[in-house]
Design a protein around this nucleic acid. Sequence first.
DNA 1: TATGAATGAGTGTTCATTCAT
DNA 2: TATGAATGAACACTCATTCAT
Lengths: 210, 210, 210, 210
Amino acid sequence: MGTRQEKKERITEQRRQQILDAALAVFSRKGYGEATIPDISLEAGIAVGTIYNYYESKRDLLLSIFSTYVFTQPFVKLLEHTLEMDDRTFLSLLIEDRLDFGFENMDRFFFLLSEVQRDPELRQQYSQEVLGPVLGLLEKYLESRVASRVFRPVNISMVARVLGGAMIGFLLLCRIEGESGPCRSMFRKELATELTDFVLKGLLQSEDRT
Amino acid sequence: MGTRQEKKERITEQRRQQILDAALAVFSRKGYGEATIPDISLEAGIAVGTIYNYYESKRDLLLSIFSTYVFTQPFVKLLEHTLEMDDRTFLSLLIEDRLDFGFENMDRFFFLLSEVQRDPELRQQYSQEVLGPVLGLLEKYLESRVASRVFRPVNISMVARVLGGAMIGFLLLCRIEGESGPCRSMFRKELATELTDFVLKGLLQSEDRT
Amino acid sequence: MGTRQEKKERITEQRRQQILDAALAVFSRKGYGEATIPDISLEAGIAVGTIYNYYESKRDLLLSIFSTYVFTQPFVKLLEHTLEMDDRTFLSLLIEDRLDFGFENMDRFFFLLSEVQRDPELRQQYSQEVLGPVLGLLEKYLESRVASRVFRPVNISMVARVLGGAMIGFLLLCRIEGESGPCRSMFRKELATELTDFVLKGLLQSEDRT
Amino acid sequence: MGTRQEKKERITEQRRQQILDAALAVFSRKGYGEATIPDISLEAGIAVGTIYNYYESKRDLLLSIFSTYVFTQPFVKLLEHTLEMDDRTFLSLLIEDRLDFGFENMDRFFFLLSEVQRDPELRQQYSQEVLGPVLGLLEKYLESRVASRVFRPVNISMVARVLGGAMIGFLLLCRIEGESGPCRSMFRKELATELTDFVLKGLLQSEDRT
DNA sequence: TATGAATGAGTGTTCATTCAT
DNA sequence: TATGAATGAACACTCATTCAT
């Protein structure tokens, strides 16, 4: 059920996707600066010149990766749909989901993060379009819990950033330590539970509370 | 008050430093791959050829930055000297120190981290010479506290990495959000206290313990 | 009359040739070390980058020149086909042919010889693949003549090298003396005859034989 | 018996010599283009800057080598003093002397020859100041022998160049064939005798004369 | 006069981009 | 529209030459 026109558009869209995937793969493997257009053309099985029919420049590829894969945030959906669960369940689901995602997409994620840090323009866009909404939801969640006295009165901005940062930083350390580090042998489920406990109860024994 | 010979050596050392500083500055600004030797020569106010009188190659500059600024760890000293304090004091001192250091050296720190991630050789060296010792000390600390029942029994490897990762991740998010983010207006002291509380007590009100 | 594919290959081959010719011309004029890639690109009327689409490096150009022009030896054919002639005819044909070739290709020949001397790898290859076979045939020829008592019993190895060397050395001196030297005004035919006589009869008058 | 002034001049002359020797050694080893001034300064045990107090440029070093070692011709002396000997003795002495000299100074000689070929200016100078006189003497010698009917009537210009060229070419081939070639195992004395015989009597048996 | 660090033009080489087919 | 050869600006690096000490 598609006119000639629509068919053509579908094929065009497929091509764009194919190129973008190849670019992301190569960028993740070698880094943006070290990756070359011939590399990408090889990975995609598409001629160098053709890439330029779909994307204006190497940098355009990078930006398109961001707008396709990063600046659209299915993650926010997750946050929205789970706000009504009880805290332990919500947190451990959230954490497990993010850990799964992180471990699965490590190279890509850290390549993207790396570029975000390098490029001020991307940084601002990422800050506004990704971090902003996500941290916003997290803050709203924390705020409601503090308001209902489930959580202690804390500096909400900061705790939101510490929680988000802890996920990213934990993955980062796991990645640097590599295959031989202790992270690889941890079970994802157990990790999520333990982390949830840590976030909720901290480190102290109950009786030591100050 | 030094011989001719000593004077010359001092000047040579100064030059090396001057070049290394310029390289670090440029690398931090543009990333290793995007930085050029003329960039560095301009930043240092030194001719291109002179750089090569002091360093063998661009990569040698990178490695020298690491061995000068990264693979020497005054930080470990800090950890060793504070193990005997009470926990709240120790943690908040540690956190404050790391936050201070992180905010002061953000661009440099994340450039270095970025390269560590890109370069497998650096990654392994960093893992062994920096992360290993630091996480080791943190684990020893946690272990002793758990043994003396001050801390709950937790997965020590994981908590060590979550704590370390939280610091890094928090700084990372602050950096991405930039000057206009909420981090910049937080007081360092307050931050440290709040974070310490979070680590020790978690989020729950005492009476809500599950 | 060729498929698309064949046409492309022909053009590619032409380009390779065009570049190689330009390289040989420039190398012959300035020497390998003093020649630059821009020089060659100018001579060929081709962009610098294009040269690198056909040859891996400057050195690859040099080696390709050798394998194209030097390490293929039509000369050996000549030697083989003339072994049955009478000596005077054979020698004067051989000498004339080599003189013709030498005078025609002087600059190129001495550039190549010069590089052979400079580069140990080329030297060995040249020794094995060019000098070896050529001197071998010459020795075989001398040996048969000595065996049949047409020639005096001589040190065959040495005489072969003296004969070959005399051709090269003669050309070399002609080249150094240049256009104004006496060589340029000699007739090639006469030269060959005279040289043949010299080789066969030496300098002495018949009656002066010692 | 030298004033202060003379002493200084002697030291200066020594320095010039020391530098020139080092330059010749390095040039012969690596070729003019590949040799660097620091190489020469190392070989001479003299600072880079000092070299420039004695010679204007790298090229000046090359030209000075020529005017010191090449464009002064002790060889001509030899030719002059032996004109009265009998031919066989004269020729074999001459040949032996040149072979000795050639084998002893191969690298230097062929480096110089190589530069002569590369550089038109040097070429002309060499032609006029070295080749000219030497070939002139040889021609004079041949001429007198032909006049006195000891030698056959030959094209004197050509034979002179063939004789000179044969020496150079023979050495050249020996050099290219290297240590493993047959030249290295020949006795110098025997070589000279054989070569003399060849020059005087040619290759034919007496009775085969055509 | 002797030194060797500083210089920067010049080298071989790469690669994003263009364009004729 | 797809192709990949052609392009040349830009890169890392070298080295003859200068000059302050």
